[in-house]
């Protein structure tokens, strides 16, 4: 039995290492060649910062990067607020309405993204041409669209936290005279912060990654995805190597900080809760 376990461990390590190599090899090559003068990745060249210098001058690529982050952060924040409030609402709905809302929130998740993208484009046409509303493709519309496609994921991130809530706390809030809204903000929401943070992270990543919905609704605005896509089909400035490297390193650092900060904060919260409200600790078990 022990030999079998050891064999599985060795093979497991081998498989894991090979997978990681395959997965990260392309990214590692891009990072390496971001410091090389070689025209193509795999070619020979000398050490240089030229692509980083070029990146500062490449206004179109910088614009696309800024747009990507603005859309990601703004739509992520709106989605987090809307998603959290909706998760609370859906959680307390009665069975029939609850399943209708759950199904509705899954439509964009399940649907082919192209169809969602087409839908947003047609909606924008309808609002502008038929209802004469001041709606058009571009930043604002992209923020709306990205919010709508990421809200379901925030709901998914927050709902499990809701089911771990101690119902007595909300009851107590109501008994002490707080209305629904006040109970939501002062009792329920503070307990959902962790779910909200992971919901935001998820929404932000998905928005950053999005191509199809953005492509259909962007108008003249570019994001990293659409800019690189157009570049790969025509000609792409090698500064993209520098951008890839910066983004990869930045995200790595953010994630590490996030994890350190997150685990410490979590430890603090547990301690505090143990001290202040023994009821909720008992309820958690």
């Amino acid at each position: 039995m022990n030999g079998k376990k050891l064999a599985f461990k060795i093979v497991g390590w081998a498989v894991l290492v090979i997978m990681l190599l395959v997965m990260y090899f392309p990214i590692a090559m891009v990072i390496g060649y971001s410091f090389s003068s070689a025209k193509a990745i795999g070619g020979s060249g000398h050490f240089t910062f030229a692509w980083y210098a070029g990146l500062i001058k490449d206004e179109a690529l910088l614009d696309a990067t800024v747009n990507t982050f603005v859309i990601g952060i703004v739509s992520g924040l709106i989605a987090t607020v809307l998603g959290t409030v909706s998760a609370v609402g859906i959680y307390y709905l009665k069975r029939g309405r609850k399943s209708v809302m759950n199904a509705a929130s899954q439509i964009t998740v399940v649907n082919a993204e192209v169809v969602t993208a087409v839908g947003f484009y047609l909606l924008q046409l309808f609002l502008r041409d038929t209802l004469h509303l001041p709606v058009e493709e571009g930043m604002g519309w992209l923020i709306v669209a990205h919010t709508m496609i990421t809200v379901p994921y925030v709901i998914l991130a927050v709902t499990p936290r809701l089911s771990q809530l101690n119902p007595n706390l909300a009851e107590a809030g109501m008994d002490l005279g707080a209305g629904s809204v006040r109970t939501l903000f002062t009792v329920i929401l503070p307990q959902l912060v962790k779910g909200m943070i992971s919901g935001f992270a998820l929404a932000f990543t998905l928005s950053l990654d999005d191509f199809v919905v953005t492509k259909f609704n962007k108008g003249d605005v570019s994001t990293i995805s659409t800019y690189v896509y157009d570049g790969l089909k025509h000609s792409l400035n090698n500064s993209v190597r520098a951008l890839s490297t910066i983004i990869f390193v930045a995200v790595l650092v953010i994630m590490i900080l996030f994890n350190l900060f997150g685990s410490r904060k979590n430890a603090g919260a547990t301690k505090k809760r143990k001290r202040k409200t023994p009821v909720s600790v008992a309820g958690d078990q």
Partner: peptide, 21 residues
């Protein structure tokens, strides 16, 4: 009472998800 918080999303869903389809 708390189910009311699902209302905004229900409205937004109708406008931005169901209607486009």
């Amino acid at each position: 009472g708390k189910g009311i918080f699902a209302l905004p999303y229900a409205a937004v869903c109708v406008i931005f998800v169901v209607f486009p389809l």
